[in-house]
């Protein structure tokens, strides 16, 4: 039976792990390579690296981090942030990532999904989506709208429709982040997670709002997600990955317990 996955997300700025409120953080909280290795040894099922560097120079430093990670951890990991061309994807994959995540780059140019899937296989291409709840309208029938720039820019696209479009274009997985829940520690946006999970047949990773193992359990069961993304809850040592996995597994939602 397939296990549900727990995926720590590491935000990297100028080669250092950065404190979590993704779009505004710049507090140095450690070495991403060391942290990734620790999570690997603790049983993380996958790792996500998010490049929040703005500069060209920072990009090179980030890819160097990815290469060093690839030499030390032997589970899949994905890379996101600033990916907007097939060349960006190739650079991340060559550095050792299994998957690349496209977000605002795909909103602006959806063809990047099909081009990436054709060049590297659908399993490589993750669609990252940032979503906010809005009034239901003709343009946004689900009441969930796609946003970019950390929620500062509304794109006039319905989140459910965008998820289906991305699947049709060849995305292999969706990482679904609720901007409303992100950073609250009040739990994942379960209604949104379930709506997207039921609308597509590719795996969905729930993101934003994790404050306890129970929240992850809820996203993986009620929310029908295949995986749960976590950040500050493990970065600051509130919970360890083995604790989280044991809690979820003991409640009857299968986790990978031997590593």
């Amino acid at each position: 039976m397939l296990s549900k996955r727990i995926i720590p997300c590491l935000d990297v700025r100028n080669g250092r792990l950065t404190k979590g409120v993704r779009f505004e953080g710049n507090v140095d909280i450690g070495d991403p390579v060391e942290t990734a290795r620790m999570y690997y040894e603790q049983g993380a099922d996958e790792i996500v690296f998010y490049d929040i560097t703005a500069s060209h120079e920072g990009r090179g430093i980030f890819l160097d981090v990815v290469e060093r990670v690839a030499e030390q951890i032997f589970i899949p990991f994905s890379v996101g942030g600033g990916i907007s061309t097939v060349a960006d994807m190739r650079a991340a994959l060559m550095a050792g990532a299994e998957k690349v995540s496209v977000n605002s780059g795909a909103v602006k140019n959806p063809d990047i999904i099909s081009e990436g899937a054709a060049a590297f296989g659908a399993q490589c291409v993750v669609l990252g989506m940032d979503v906010k709840q809005v009034e239901k309208s003709e343009a946004i029938p689900s009441g969930y709208e796609v946003v970019i720039h950390g929620g500062r820019k509304y794109m006039g696209m319905d989140a459910i429709e965008w998820a289906k479009t991305a699947e049709a274009l060849g995305a292999g997985e969706i990482c679904l982040n609720s901007i409303d829940a992100d950073g609250t520690k009040d739990g994942y946006e379960l209604t949104l997670t379930r709506m997207v999970s039921e609308a597509v047949s590719i795996p969905v990773i729930a993101s934003g709002g994790a404050g306890s193992p129970e929240h992850m359990y809820d996203a993986l069961t009620e929310g029908k997600a295949s995986a749960a993304l976590i950040a500050s809850i493990v970065h600051y040592g509130e919970y360890t990955i083995p604790q989280i996995k044991k809690y979820i597994n003991d409640r009857g939602c299968k986790m990978r317990m031997v590593w």
Binding site: M1, L2, S3, K4, R5, D45, A122, Q123, G172, E173, S201, I202, P203, K224, S226, A227, R256
Partner: peptide, 21 residues
């Protein structure tokens, strides 16, 4: 076959992606 179901009776997702024994 997309008609296959998982342990909860939901249709399986394709690709089969993740950890399995």
């Amino acid at each position: 076959n997309s008609g296959l179901e998982d342990e909860n009776g939901d249709p399986i997702r394709v690709p089969h992606m993740g950890w399995n024994s």
